[in-house]
């Protein structure tokens, strides 16, 4: 099992459209979430190079960050080590999460960086190519009350007071493949003898904590 920011490659049409007026491209990827999601590992950078070359683009090379592009030092070192290629490039294509694309924009503001992927959610990978959402970064964790299973990200309606009337045989009304998370929470709390947690009314949630732009300044200790 792995845990990550889950991403999906954009369509080839979308990628070609955003790179329309650019010829010389540098691809960015990493061995972290990007590789785990099969969007920005070495294999996918090679596939992207083949694809773009086929459409008349010139891929100058890769910036591949071991660990992850979220390691700012490692990203900077890779960029510095490849400055000649970076300077020759017309644009950058980032095969990693939205934070990575914006990190490149901030590090290299003279040129445009484009997202090759859609960042989807924070989740798990029970097996390769399969990802499930686990956290929506709502700003106020309730896992201590729900047996460690998140109703915000895993209930299709984000309900806080138990399942809706569409929960049947353990499955969600939205589609036949999604489990009703409230059934899972109920089963787990029953085992833990903590059903009282969900018998009482949960008050309205402060959704302002879930909206951006959010900043946190931790005090030094």
């Amino acid at each position: 099992m792995s845990y990550m920011i889950v991403m999906d490659l954009k369509s080839s049409e979308d990628i070609l459209e955003m790179l329309d007026s650019f010829e010389k491209i540098v691809l960015f990827g990493d061995s972290g979430c990007a590789q785990m999601c099969d969007v920005g590992g070495i294999l996918q950078l090679e596939d992207m190079e083949d694809f773009l070359t086929g459409y008349g683009k010139k891929v100058l090379g890769y910036i591949f960050v071991e660990g992850g592009m979220c390691d700012a030092n490692a990203l900077k070192q890779e960029i510095d080590a490849n400055m000649e290629m970076i300077e020759e490039a017309d644009a950058f294509l980032i095969q990693a999460c939205g934070v990575a694309t914006q990190a490149v924009v901030e590090l290299l503001p003279e040129k445009e960086a484009f997202p090759a992927v859609d960042s989807k959610f924070l989740g798990v990978m029970p097996e390769r190519y399969h990802h499930d959402e686990r956290c929506s970064m709502c700003g106020e964790c309730v896992l201590h009350l729900t047996g460690g299973i998140c109703p915000i990200s895993r209930c299709a309606k984000g309900l806080l007071n138990g399942p809706c009337g569409g929960s049947m045989d353990g499955m969600c009304e939205r589609d036949p493949d999604t489990e009703c998370v409230w059934q899972l929470i109920y089963d787990r709390l029953k085992k833990l003898d903590k059903l009282d947690n969900i018998k009482r009314i949960w008050e309205m949630k402060d959704w302002s904590l879930a909206r951006g732009p959010r900043s946190i300044v931790h005090e030094e200790t």
């Binding site: 399942p163 569409g166 929960s167 059934q183 109920y186 969900i198």
Partner: peptide
């Protein structure tokens, strides 16, 4: 709807 006990609550 399931689980019934939860819907009763």
């Amino acid at each position: 709807a399931d689980p019934m006990e939860m819907h009763v609550w």
